[in-house]
Every structure is written in C-alpha cells, then in structure tokens.
Amino acid sequence: MSSVEDSAREIAARTLQQFAENKGWRLMIAIAGAPGSGKSTIAEQVVDVLNGESGVSAALFPMDGFHYDDAVLKDMGRLPYKGAIDTFDAHGLRHTLKRLKANEDDVVAVPVFDRSIEIARAGGRLISQSVNIIVCEGNYLLSRQEPWNLLKPIFDLTVFVDVAEDDLRSGLRERWRSFGLGDADITRKVEENDLPNGRAIISGSDEPDMRVKNPDAG
C-alpha cells in the first residue's frame, strides 16, 4: 500500500468517526497543502474510500474552481502569478462552503477548474442534498490571512499534507511537463510562482486537526 493510500485511509477513518459523532449531519472536510503536495490525489482517494462504506455518500469539492479568469488576472496585472492567494475568489468560496454546509438546497452547482485549458468551468459539478460528506481540497483553506481565515470554522475536520520542498519541486516540474511546457517555462513557473506560493502556504496556514505525510509527492 502506498503512502498516499495510507494517508487517505487515515483521513477517511477520522472522518467516519467524526461523522458518527455528528449523528448524520453533513460533514465538511478540508484537505490543504502546497501545490504539488499530492493533496488532490489524497482527497480523491478519501472520497473513494468513504463511498465504499455502507450508508455514506461523499463528494469532492476542489477550491481551484474559484480561480479568477485569465482576463481578470490580466487586468489586475497578476496573470503571471496565477495560483497566488490573491488570484482566487475567497468570498465566493466561503459563501459556497456555507451553502454546502447548510444543505438546504436539493442540489448545489460548483465550479471546477479545467487545468488543460486553465479555465474554471461554472457549474462543472453538482452536489446533491443526499451527500453526507464534502471533501474540499485546496492550497489556502487553512490560511491565516484575511478573509481566508474565515474558512476554517466552517470545516468539521481539517487536514494538512506535509511534503519536503525537494519533492514539491520534482512533482511540480513533472506536472507542468505533462502539459507540454518546455524546460525554461517550467523553471519559471516552479521557481518564480509555485514554490514561493508553497512556502507561503506552509508558513501561513493555521494548525490543522491532523497532518499526513506524502513522501511520494515527487
């Protein structure tokens, strides 16, 4: 069993324990970490594990759907720094999380980021009222910076994925290489944007309820 699978099962076990204590009320889980830390893969596997349990329904809710559009970032002069904390709609994310937690609507449409075209697709995923557990994953879910610091109280369980910087660098380079970028562009994106963001996330995140390690991130 890989460390990713171990981490996913550890989070799922803690989630099910929390769900039982909440007596069936919808549970909101945050999985945070630096870009390239493997949090998205872990979150996907947590959802798979939870959906394999009898009587439990889980859904994935990625934070990346709240990226500002490239046209907006260009007007802001922030397009080269896409992925930094100020290039996301923090208030939109917060209100959607609160709507999901309230679980008053029969279905909630959430945006999903399409990395192949670098654009968020509105209404890219539907989360129905019957879903018991929402697993939200993203870089800044535990940030102490305003207004991001308003997110943590919404969650019932918070997780941070720890990974060594060398593994982050390796994983990020491989990610951009898979999208067809050349070495010069990869180096610029990783060293000038992704890694600085990753360091800021690691140092600027609040303490989670649990930490998991992912040495396989690279």
Rank of each mutant, 00 (worst) to 15 (best):
Arg94Val: 02
Arg115Ile: 12
Lys101Tyr: 13
Asn132Met: 08
Lys152Asn: 12
Asn149Ile: 11
Asp64Lys: 10
Gly123Ala: 00
Lys213Cys: 06
Leu93Lys: 08
Arg26Pro: 14
Gly180Asn: 05
Lys74Glu: 11
Ile85Phe: 09
Asp183Tyr: 11
Pro80Ser: 11
Asn197Met: 07
Val4Thr: 06
Glu10Val: 06
Asn197Ile: 01
Pro147Lys: 03
Asn197Gly: 04
Gln145Gly: 12
Asp185Cys: 05
Glu191Gly: 03
Ile85Leu: 12
Val46Glu: 05
Lys189Ala: 01
Gly24Cys: 09
Arg14Trp: 01
Tyr68Arg: 09
Ser2Arg: 10
Ser3Lys: 12
Glu53Asp: 07
Leu157Ser: 02
Ala30Met: 08
Val190Gly: 13
Leu73Arg: 14
Ile11Arg: 08
Lys213His: 15
Glu137Thr: 02
Met28Asp: 12
Arg177Leu: 11
Arg175Pro: 13
Asn22Arg: 15
Ile154Cys: 05
Lys74Ala: 15
Ser54Glu: 11
Asp114Ile: 10
Leu195Lys: 08
Leu181Asp: 04
Thr87Gln: 06
Leu141Ile: 12
Pro35His: 07
Arg188Gln: 15
Phe88Cys: 03
Asp75Ala: 15
Pro153Asn: 13
Met1Trp: 09
Ile134His: 12
Asp194Ser: 14
Ala90Tyr: 00
Thr158Leu: 11
Ala84Pro: 07
Lys82Tyr: 13
Val161Glu: 05
Trp25Phe: 13
Gln145Lys: 14
Trp25Cys: 15
Gly33Ile: 06
Asp209Lys: 04
Ala43Met: 00
Ser205Trp: 02
His95Asn: 10
Thr15Gly: 01
Val49Trp: 07
Ala84His: 13
Asn214Arg: 09
Ala71Lys: 15
Leu27Val: 06
Leu16Glu: 10
Leu50Cys: 06
Pro153Glu: 15
Phe66Gln: 00
Pro62Tyr: 00
Leu79Arg: 15
Lys23Ile: 11
Thr87Arg: 07
Gly123Trp: 08
Val190Lys: 15
Lys101Trp: 10
Lys23His: 13
Gln45Phe: 03
Asp70Tyr: 14
Asp86Lys: 09
Asp209Asn: 05
Arg173Ser: 09
Ala184Gln: 09
Gln145Cys: 09
Asp105Asn: 14
Leu93Val: 04
Ile133His: 08
Leu100Cys: 04
Asp69Tyr: 02
Arg14Asp: 13
Val110Gln: 07
Asn214Gly: 12
Lys152Glu: 13
Glu174Lys: 15
Glu104Ala: 08
Asp106Trp: 08
Ser7Ala: 14
Leu16Phe: 05
Ala217His: 05
Gly36Lys: 02
Asp106Pro: 04
His91Glu: 11
Ala13Met: 14
Arg169Ser: 01
Arg115Ser: 03
Asn149His: 11
Leu181Ser: 02
Asp162Pro: 09
